[in-house]
Design a binder for these strands. Structure first.
Lengths: 341, 341
DNA sequence: AAGATTTTTGCAATCGTTTGCAAGTCACGC
DNA sequence: GCGTGACTTGCAAACGATTGCAAAAATCTT
């Protein structure tokens, strides 16, 4: 009878539970929050009741009162290539690791994709919503300036991307320029002399990779590296690569692809056009995604440590939430030599 | 001077803005919410001020008062294979499409990964948090019963997964059993007679795929399909596949892989062991991920329409939020014949 | 120009939780 | 018996936006 009643009574808020427990709402709040100021017996009783009724404090109300939500925003700006970038394996893997790290730290993750051209103040909007305690931006895309604008008015923001000398915002990312150097060095060591860069250099990370490769080409006295711009979505990229190859195949003997995904597509096209890799064409990718080990032949590539990146992003963000003023974190790339160069 | 002042004054809430505009907070709220009850001129003034000060109403407060948050929870239970399932390409791609669809409908997406064994009431916790208007569960994993329990007390939930006769919860998913049939039929049509299923049949979706394949094997009078269980994370799966192959390679001539990812790994192992595909071993995958087109030889696989799945999930969820009582949605799989079977 | 309508606005309660402050209880020692 | 602390609890004011209701202002009727 008593239990029937207990199960029947709807407990919608802390006040209902307080009535049931015969205490004040304040006490229930303190008990459920695990504060030390409440008597052990009372706490036990309250916890039992809460469990019995499946009651959980409303996070919205709690967030409102405490002025913090326990939610970290993760935003992916689809700037220079608005379609399908989110399905890019690299970003997705990073996102997975972020989810892990944030969960471990007791935060929830609010994901938002935005198309900056459609909506100029995507970042302020997210931050100003009051729903998130801090924000992680995945990829600078072509939004460097806007991010920079926001950075000095808003502390708890960390960005995945490229580090530029003297920038305001706190960034975590691989040393893309160094990665580009490693790639070019490898291509040249493998015997290539006329290089091409496959990818859209509008994206700042890609531009840095290209610049690094160009450093080496220049130092070695090779002709300038030509760029073969592509989109990132697999279908469009395929065509574009095919087109590039048929035009330049006789004038180049080494390709540095901005991404393993592009490299893999390129490899497929090369095979279709009967160009032997690595004999007639050397190829190096970037990222070291799982696919790099599965291509035929396996892809030589520059590795980014995604897990370390995610850890860095979360770590820095938490420090910033605690009020610390943090420096950027630049991770070292690592050359993975396999069979394409 | 005036503008200086305007820029200097901090506008933290609707009341501040009301003071500035010389109206009451209520009016500001109505103006910003785009209600028709407010005078056009007043609204213009208020909107201008809001823009000027970069003010946005606090979503927490709004959510609290309106009892809805504009956020949809997306939860990925890591049940039968707790590690790294989120980085599975299929789920990630689905997640990307979900983000698109939800954004288009004006909802935000809150992502949560949970490990059910560590925390039994993962689903109730998420729902009871008051942070989300509805929930999409990606993958039933081994949590079918728990989901089922929740389903009749809570309306706005839709699950990606397998449809079982007579189940409570609303599910969207491919007809896995039919997919399994298509795969087995193709393997057999290509000349295979002794089949194996590669994947962990604890996962209910995989079990259905296996069952479908078994249907066909039985109908054709072939010996029962053997199962080669694996984990989903690439590193462990690789070893396990290698081990399975070295044991069974002489007794089977066709493999149905639960996933394209597994199929691709399997293909790599087959090559390493010098087994010709499709001559000595036929192989069919599942999902039709981008990778399926890039393997050598290209992978014959059963396609799931991920975009349609995402659209279905969101559509059904919105209908349920509107109070409608919806049926499950079972999508047809499609066989993509390439070169491995 | 007074009365009847229709817009616009303001008032104040409400959503559910947290927390500073003050009051209450209890045990202890003098 | 009473003052002193150490624990526990209750009270009530926040947090910031929304909205039913009623008052005020503007517009229309006749």
């Amino acid at each position: 009878m008593d239990e029937d009643n207990a199960a029947r009574v709807m407990v919608r808020n802390i006040t209902d539970l307080a009535r049931l427990a015969g205490v004040s709402p304040g006490t229930v709040s303190r008990a459920l929050a695990g504060k030390s100021l409440v008597n052990a017996k009372t706490r036990a009783r309250i916890e039992a009741l809460a469990r019995e009724h499946g009651f959980r404090p409303n996070q919205m109300a709690s967030g409102l009162r405490r002025q913090k939500t326990g939610v970290i925003g993760v935003v992916i700006p689809l700037g220079h290539d608005s379609r399908q970038q989110i399905s890019d394996s690299f970003f997705m893997t990073l996102l997975g690791h972020l989810a892990d790290e944030l969960t471990r730290e007791g935060y929830d993750l609010m994901l938002r994709r935005v198309v900056p051209e459609n909506d100029a103040d995507w970042l302020d909007r997210f931050i100003g919503s009051g729903m998130i305690d801090g924000v992680i931006v995945i990829g600078q895309s072509d939004q460097f300036d806007r991010i920079e604008d926001v950075a000095d008015g808003y502390g708890p923001m960390v960005v995945w991307g490229n580090h530029t000398e003297g920038q305001q915002h706190c960034v975590v990312g691989t040393d893309n320029r160094l990665g580009g150097r490693l790639a070019a060095e490898r291509l040249i060591a493998a015997g290539a002399t006329r290089l091409a860069f496959l990818g859209d250099t509008t994206a700042i990370e890609f531009a840095a990779r290209f610049a690094g490769a160009q450093d080496i080409a220049a130092r070695m006295g090779l002709p300038p590296i030509i760029t073969l711009p592509t989109h990132l979505s697999p279908d469009r990229a395929s065509e574009e690569i095919a087109c590039h190859l048929s035009q330049h195949t006789s004038t180049i003997d080494g390709i540095f692809a901005a991404t393993d995904t592009l490299a893999a597509l390129c490899l497929t096209e090369l095979r279709d056009q009967g160009i032997a890799v690595p004999e007639a064409m050397k190829l190096v990718g970037f990222d070291d995604l799982p696919i790099a080990r599965q291509t035929v032949p396996p892809l030589t590539t520059v590795r980014q440590d995604i897990a370390a990146g995610a850890r860095g992003l979360v770590d820095l963000l938490l420090r910033r939430l605690a009020g610390e003023k943090t420096e950027s974190l630049v991770l070292p790339p690592e050359l993975m030599v396999r069979a394409t160069a």
